[in-house]
Design a protein around this nucleic acid. Structure first.
Lengths: 337, 337
DNA sequence: GCCGGTGGTGATAACGCTAACAATCGGGTG
DNA sequence: CACCCGATTGTTAGCGTTATCACCACCGGC
């Protein structure tokens, strides 16, 4: 019936007292400092376990100046791509014993990016991963604090950068379609202010140009299925259209319905290629030929690059090679009639 | 050319010195403590602005014991539902000046949940939002630390809970289909270990039972389009099947393709209803009749409930009403032939 | 004109940890 | 046997905030 001392969270000193060492030694054990004899270490660990001691992150952050937290700035985090990348980032960060803090921005524009970065600064993150989306990377860059290590998921820039292939694969997709006998390939681009969209468009255009094919006009839009449907209706109504490269799978999906609705058939009358290879792509009506992006690798590379910057500064970590994307052929493409 | 003192991050004391007050007063200003005269406040704010002072979160956390960080435990964060909820949580938390830390679990099982919660404890989060997914909520509950305020996104439980309607709407969907003249409605359930899936199944079953219709067997599966396709082929091959309620839109999407492939038509031969109303649902082939879930409201409620617990403990915040879901009728349903 | 309040402010001590340096303990060496 | 060295452990200061309490005017009422 003696009053239990304080059931409050034990601190370094409590463990130290129980183990009969100084709190500093306990600290060393938890830091994996080499200069601790195995015997002492065991004794400390036993004491810590007995008290269910857990180091206080805030105190550690205060003393060291690092929080072991990574900030991630991203747009439209409910979209499959960003969501997959963020999940991969979180997993890899966790494996490296880092926490992750995500800012989901909705509106484009500097204000939002600058605000998120500011917030992360206040929070004391050790580094930032930017998934710029809307914002042209140059703009995004301007708002990065120079005192915070940063990795940009985007086209190569004057900064540590991770990027996926958004150019080669679309070009290959166009060639494939052309090889199937199509005269040309139409295109449904993504939003003009996303660099990924522009890269894909460039790949499409170059693929066409290299083969000497016509480069048709294309209507601006966004990433949504709605946008694919609306622009798709126009395309579907044009009998000259026999092959279309959509900037992502959602657009392709809307297009598929527009074509179906117009009475034409995919792939018999029109071939369609998407981009991303969302998990649903293989089960659309019909299963979509598309370009697969490796989001997991992308997220992993971001974390690796950032952590490398944190642990070995100075090293101007060159951008690793872009993560390759590849064409997955399914049933929405066929030889021209 | 005098050496600038230290361009290091200014602290409370630097601001205090510049403003000619004590650091404590500066602290008061930044805490919005009422006992500061407007004049002093202005002077302090001016000094702070001049030095670009920003309070140090780690120090504050250490001193107060609260980190203004919320932990979110979720499965399959790349899925549309969880991703949407998490985005909504982040936004609402941000608006309330809280940071958000997400753990994306992959494997089901206690180990993972317990691990994530532990991690959050170490990180010093002020509260946790659990989006249990796989784990039966009872299990999930068992791993919650009783010293950490928690909100569960799930069925009512002995805990602060936010839930969506997964029962009434499916029942209504079934009635609607029956009203269209279908003899019965088949069902493609979600994973048996997700409570949402079970609720939806229960709604379907009760809807059928109440109307005295047959309750067909249904094959177990997961949330994926693949699962919808595979199970859908069986259903499509059975001429007795004229209406199907799929546990989510991905399953419905796979089913749509399976039916199409079998040569039957949607909705002419078979009616299909999904669940979630993912943004693509309106543009599938054909546009999917489905049940819309309000993910945004769900996320908002979680944050509100949790923050209420944090600011006014004691109050055993009763579970708010479930967030309603509602049937959106599109073109994948039609009267029985 | 003295006293109890009360709005405003300052001094001092935590918060739980790490960093830097001092101290101690054995041995091997000259 | 004194001396130096390296391995290990202890001591003392912070890190930048908030909390607590003491302090100082100044006000109104007796």
């Amino acid at each position: 019936m003696t009053a239990t001392p304080p059931p409050a969270r034990p601190g370094l000193r409590d463990v130290a007292r129980l183990a009969g060492v100084s709190h500093q030694t306990v600290s060393r054990v938890f830091k994996n400092h080499p200069m601790v004899s195995p015997k002492t270490r065991d004794r400390v660990l036993a004491a810590a376990a007995q008290l269910d001691f857990r180091p206080n992150a805030a105190a550690r952050a205060l003393a060291t100046g690092r929080s072991r937290t990574l900030g991630v700035v991203s747009f439209d985090t409910a979209l499959f791509g960003p969501a997959s990348i963020i999940a991969a980032i979180e997993r890899n960060a966790r494996a490296a014993e880092f926490f992750t803090s995500v800012a989901s921005l909705e509106s484009p524009g500097h204000g939002a990016v600058a605000g998120a970065v500011d917030r992360f600064r206040d929070q004391g993150v050790d580094g930032i991963i930017m998934i710029p989306g809307h914002v042209p990377p140059d703009e995004a860059l301007r708002h990065l604090p120079d005192d915070l290590p940063t990795v940009l998921l985007g086209p190569e820039a004057a900064l540590a950068t991770v990027s996926a292939d958004h150019y080669l694969a679309p070009r290959e997709a166009v060639r494939y379609l052309l090889g199937l006998g199509h005269r040309t390939v139409h295109h449904l681009p993504g939003p003009a202010d996303w660099w990924e969209a522009n890269e894909r468009t460039r790949g499409w255009r170059d693929g066409l140009a290299e083969a000497g094919a016509d480069v048709p006009d294309c209507a601006p839009g966004d990433w949504s299925a709605r946008s694919g449907y609306e622009r798709g209706r126009l395309l579907a109504a044009d009998p000259g259209v026999t092959a279309v490269f959509a900037a992502n799978d959602q657009i392709a999906l809307g297009l598929l319905w527009a074509i179906h609705e117009s009475g034409r058939r995919v792939p018999d009358d029109v071939s369609v290629i998407g981009f991303d290879d969302i998990p649903e792509a293989a089960f659309l009506t019909p299963p979509l030929t598309t370009v697969r992006q490796d989001f997991t690798a992308l997220g992993r590379h971001c974390v690796e690059l950032l952590i490398r910057q944190l642990t070995e500064p100075g090293k101007a970590a060159g951008a690793p090679d872009p993560v390759p994307s590849r064409l997955i052929i399914r049933r929405s493409t066929a030889p021209a009639a």
